[in-house]
Computed example of a mutant assay.
Amino acid sequence: MVIDFSAISVSAIDWRGAVRIIRSVFPPIDLFEDIADPADWPLIISAEQKTNPRLMETIGNLDLVPETRRIAGPGASYLMAPFTHVSTDRPNRFSDGTFGVLYVGNSFEVALFETIHHHGQFMARTNEPAGWTSQFREIVLDVSARLHDLRSQAGSWGLLLPDNYEASQALGFRLRATGSDGVVYPSVRYPDGECVGVFYPDRAANPIQGRHLDYHWNGTTVDLYRDANTGQVYRIV
């Protein structure tokens, strides 16, 4: 299917208190959390590699983020890491894994349902036993950008098929190559919710850690989540 790029409008998105949920296994990256100017990062990396040869495994591929679009300071790891740790073994809706995309929901429920879907797929694929599984953390952040708006056209081009990313990956590659900052689109996993996929970390800001969450796998699906801070358990319906 041929996508008419000229038919995709660009909309100003200004979300305060948007939500991303990530695996807690990923720790903050010291370089990104430091207040040092990103322009100085190559020199810092060169010096630190002399005592820490595995440093680049932590940082990832910094060259994937243009210098002028890098961000630093408290919480910056949550915004930088999705762009420096990419792999074609982990494709997603708008990227084949050769470049990063920061996915954010406009509410906690959107982020929750998007992540439990993908976590459930992983658990089924690896034939994991039932039980409480990996811990996740809620990241609350702001998104301010002019993004290509797919909220009215996505259905007609096959961009939001539940499990087929071919058309959306082709679109993401094309838009990013022509200077787009990302896309805004309806959530596939949570009705009436919205998501953004931004192509550069400087389109988001003010990330702070919220709740710690546990997901429960019943052998078929993720059926419960638990707020690790309070111990309260909620059923997924």
Rank of each mutant, 00 (worst) to 15 (best):
M1Y: 08
D4P: 08
F5M: 08
S6G: 12
S9A: 15
V10S: 12
S11R: 14
R16N: 11
G17R: 06
V19W: 08
R20K: 07
I21C: 01
R23M: 11
R23H: 12
S24I: 04
S24D: 14
V25C: 11
V25N: 10
F26Q: 10
F26Y: 12
E33T: 05
A36K: 14
W41V: 04
P42Y: 09
P42E: 04
L43A: 15
I45V: 15
I45H: 09
A47Y: 07
A47F: 06
E48M: 14
Q49K: 13
P53Q: 05
R54Q: 15
N61P: 03
L64I: 03
T68M: 11
R70S: 09
G73I: 05
G75M: 10
P82S: 13
H85E: 06
V86Y: 04
V86N: 00
T88S: 07
P91V: 03
S95V: 00
D96T: 02
G100T: 01
L102M: 14
E109N: 09
H117K: 14
G120N: 01
Q121A: 09
F122M: 08
F122Y: 14
M123W: 11
M123N: 05
E138F: 07
E138V: 09
I139F: 05
L147P: 00
L150W: 05
A154K: 03
G155Q: 13
S156Y: 08
W157Y: 13
G158A: 01
L159S: 02
N164G: 02
Y165T: 02
A167C: 03
S168K: 02
L171H: 02
G172V: 00
G172Y: 01
L175K: 02
R176L: 00
G179R: 09
S180E: 03
V183A: 08
V184S: 02
Y185M: 00
S187D: 07
V188P: 06
Y190H: 15
P191V: 14
E194V: 11
V196L: 00
V196Q: 01
V196I: 04
V196A: 00
A204H: 04
P207H: 07
I208E: 13
I208D: 06
Q209S: 12
G210Q: 08
R211K: 14
H212C: 12
L213Y: 05
L213M: 05
T221V: 14
T221N: 10
L224M: 10
R226W: 00
T230G: 01
R235W: 05
